[in-house]
């Protein structure tokens, strides 16, 4: 009986989350579509060019207008897209002339490594810097780390990317200037080292600014812990400072840090749009810019939905982890 109740309440919870997800995706796609359809850019002029258009026959222009769907009212276009989506068809990218799913899969696999590395390293580094700073508030380490975090937090990711590019690619020539593989190399020639070599700077640019929020939050929490009654009591019980940090500090800080990190997926993805642009890195972020400027509605909608899905998954993971790991929530829920 109890087991059945648990299953039932889980089903209700999962259903609620799924409904939220569907609603979110619907709204995100609508907003992106509205923004794209009110964009002053004419897809024909942008993608074909004024000069080329001038030399075309009216029939050719008419065919292009049909291809870009210029004459179909926006509401009808959106509805057609939505009906196709429900059938499992995300459409064909107007710019790449390939199915949207295929384009996104390719771009995402380029970006994913970048995003994951930046996400992982900024989280890890921010976590340890935050602990270091919070452990001795007002100490040298604290002042350096807080100072860095505040500067990094107020630095736009694209500016950091340009600075890295100037210093490490242009002056020092340690890293390539852009792209994800060497110019002119065929697919067979590209090694894993090449790929990593090209991804280092973009990943660093993304991490540098991502560190600050997690570092500052962890520091704040660490200060709170170090001033807590239970740390005072640990001192009175003769536990060393290192023991206190490892036994009580980490334990109490890990949860909020993890939650924050999972819900920060949106920041990394947002940053990647700009950073990929600076490094001409052919990832999802750059594809989003191209699709947006080129009026490629199916591709843009596809990309916004995928990124929304990733961000949603991040937030959901944060929620689930919290309930699963924190005994105050887990055991509290079991008792009910």
């Amino acid at each position: 009986m109890k087991e059945r109740n648990k299953t039932a309440s889980f089903a209700i919870w999962a259903g609620g989350q799924a409904a939220r997800m569907v609603l979110l995706l619907l709204l995100v796609s609508m907003v992106s579509f509205v923004l794209l359809s009110v964009s002053p850019l004419d897809p024909l002029q942008t993608n074909v060019g004024q000069a080329a258009l001038g030399s075309m026959s009216p029939e050719q222009i008419e065919r292009l207008r049909t291809y870009w769907g210029v004459d179909v009212p926006p509401v009808r276009r959106y509805t057609l897209w939505l009906i196709d989506l429900l059938k499992g068809d995300m459409g064909v990218s107007l710019l790449y002339r390939r199915p949207v799913t295929e384009v996104i899969a390719g771009k995402l696999s380029n970006s994913l490594g970048l995003l994951l590395t930046a996400w992982f390293f900024s989280g890890l580094a921010g976590f340890f810097l935050g602990i270091l700073a919070g452990k001795r508030r007002g100490g040298l380490a604290d002042r350096l780390i807080t100072g860095y975090s505040l500067i990094a937090a107020s630095t736009p990711a694209f500016w950091a990317a340009m600075m890295l590019l100037m210093v490490f690619s242009v002056y020092l020539k340690w890293f390539p200037i852009g792209l994800s593989v060497p110019i002119g190399a065929s697919v067979g020639e590209v090694t894993l080292f090449d790929r990593i070599h090209h991804a280092v700077l973009p990943a660093v640019a993304l991490s540098l600014t991502g560190i600050s929020s997690i570092a500052l939050h962890t520091r704040e929490k660490m200060i709170e812990i170090m001033e807590s009654d239970y740390v005072l009591f640990s001192r009175a019980r003769g536990e060393g400072e290192m023991e206190i940090v490892l036994r009580h500090g980490l334990r109490n800080i890990l949860l909020p840090a993890m939650t924050l990190q999972f819900s920060s997926a949106s920041e990394i993805i947002g940053g990647s749009v700009l950073v990929e642009q600076v490094f001409s890195y052919p990832g999802l972020g750059q594809a989003a810019v191209t699709a947006g400027l080129g009026g490629d509605a199916p591709l843009l909608l596809g990309i916004t939905m995928i990124t929304a899905l990733i961000v949603f998954a991040g937030n959901l993971t944060a929620n689930v982890l919290y309930g699963w790991i924190d005994p105050r929530i887990r055991e509290g829920a079991l008792r009910r």
Partner: peptide, 15 residues
């Protein structure tokens, strides 16, 4: 030399 503290807040909430 040991201390018996005042309240539950002197215990680590996650231990």
């Amino acid at each position: 030399l040991v201390l018996v503290p005042q309240s539950v807040s002197y215990l680590d909430p996650l231990m």
